[in-house]
Structures are given as structure tokens and as C-alpha cells.
């Protein structure tokens, strides 16, 4: 464990807690994409399949449980909670996220570290996480609004992967044989996607106008 990875995990934890608290407190999920939340629940479910079979540390298992619990709770709130579900922007959140999953699955079947059931699903979760934010970014562009909690959620979510890139650089230089090209490239693609969002977010903040994401 190194400071970059701890910072990354804490930022990631903060992002899901910010979102969960927002939805739980104001009983509204306006501006939040259910598609992205469903993709994240799938990301965690396929990445943490080994939670019962492999033990790394108390911290590792605890965080996995928190991420699984929070992501499924958010999906549950948005789909089934009597008050929250009414605030969901169904006709704006129309990104075909299932079409994102198929290419990720095919890619995981082609490019992976080991061809085993767990490893292919783990790689699938890595590719899926890189693109999981897309429905949310599309929704933001359509609804033209970005309330600061959703903005913070995306900011933290992007920040966590940025910290992880620093963690991979650190581990590359401090641990012999620590090379995971697949993880590094997927993480880089993901962060670049957020960087793009941040650029337009910063512009809208600086010029004090509505967030305008590119078409």
C-alpha cells in the first residue's frame, strides 16, 4: 500500500458516499444517471468475485464490501425507492449502456492476463469501469445542469483514477516485475475521459456559464 493508492481509495470512497448521502438526504436523484450506476454495480460485482476465495487484507475486504454495498444501494434507491425513483430523469438517461458492455466483454475475451473465468471477468470490469461514466456525461450534457453534488461526485470519481495512475507509477519503480499494461491503459483512457469533462467544467465555472459538454 502506498500513499497514492490510499488517497485514490479514499477519494473513490468519498465519491460513492457523496452520491449516496445526496440521494438519501434530499431523496432525489435528479441529474444522476441510473445507467452509470448500474454499470458501476456490474463493475464491482465482476471485479470482486474473488472476495470470498482470496483474502488480501481486512482493509481490502472491507472496502470491497463498502463499494459493493454502496453501488447496489444507489441503484436500489433510484429504481425502487418510492420517492427517489420519481425524480429519476428516465427519458433523458437513454444511453444504450448494454451496448457498452458487449465490446468490453469481447475485448476482455481477447486481451487479458490469464484466460480464466475470474481473470476475464476481472478484465471486463476494468474495461467497463473506463467507460461507465459515459451515460452520466451524456445526461449532464442533455440536462444542461450540473448541481454541485453531482459535479463533486464526478470530480472525485475522476480524481481517484488519477491517484491510481500515480500509484502504478510508484509501484512500477519500487516493485520488480510490477507490470500490468492492461490496467494502466484502461486507467489512462478512463482518466482522459474525465479530463475532458473537467476541461469543460472548468471553462463553465471560469466563464460562469452553464456547463456545455461537446456534442
Amino acid at each position: 500500500m502506498n500513499i497514492f493508492r490510499l488517497a485514490g481509495d479514499m477519494t473513490h470512497l468519498a465519491s460513492v458516499l457523496v452520491l449516496l448521502l445526496k440521494i438519501h438526504t434530499i431523496k432525489s436523484c435528479a441529474g444522476v444517471s441510473l445507467k452509470t450506476q448500474e454499470l458501476y454495480a456490474i463493475v464491482f460485482a465482476t471485479r470482486y468475485l474473488d472476495i470470498l476465495t482470496s483474502f488480501v487484507s481486512i482493509y481490502n475486504t472491507l472496502m470491497k464490501l463498502i463499494f459493493l454495498g454502496s453501488s447496489f444501494s444507489i441503484v436500489w434507491y433510484m429504481k425502487y425507492h418510492k420517492t427517489v425513483r420519481r425524480t429519476y430523469d428516465r427519458d433523458q438517461d437513454t444511453f444504450r449502456h448494454w451496448f457498452l458492455m458487449l465490446p468490453c466483454l469481447l475485448l476482455a475475451l481477447l486481451i487479458h492476463e490469464k484466460f480464466t473465468f475470474f481473470e476475464v471477468l476481472w478484465t471486463f470490469s476494468l474495461y467497463l469501469e473506463a467507460v461507465a461514466i459515459l451515460p452520466q456525461l451524456v445526461l449532464l450534457q442533455r440536462t444542461r445542469n450540473i448541481d454541485n453534488l453531482t459535479g463533486q461526485y464526478i470530480f472525485l470519481l475522476g480524481g481517484y483514477r488519477g491517484f491510481y495512475i500515480l500509484n502504478w507509477i510508484y509501484r512500477y519503480f519500487t516493485e520488480p516485475h510490477y507490470v500490468h499494461w492492461i490496467t494502466w491503459i484502461a486507467g489512462l483512457v478512463q482518466t482522459l475521459l474525465y479530463a475532458d469533462f473537467f476541461y469543460y467544467y472548468f471553462l463553465s465555472w471560469k466563464n460562469n456559464k452553464k456547463l456545455q459538454l461537446p456534442a
Binding site: 500500500m1 463499494f67 476481472w122 491510481y164
Partner: peptide, 10 residues
Amino acid sequence: DSPKGFHDEL
């Protein structure tokens, strides 16, 4: 950390 090839990150 854990042995090589073992996913020790979240």
C-alpha cells in the same frame, strides 16, 4: 504486497 499476478488493488 501479495504474490505476482494476484489482484491486490481495489
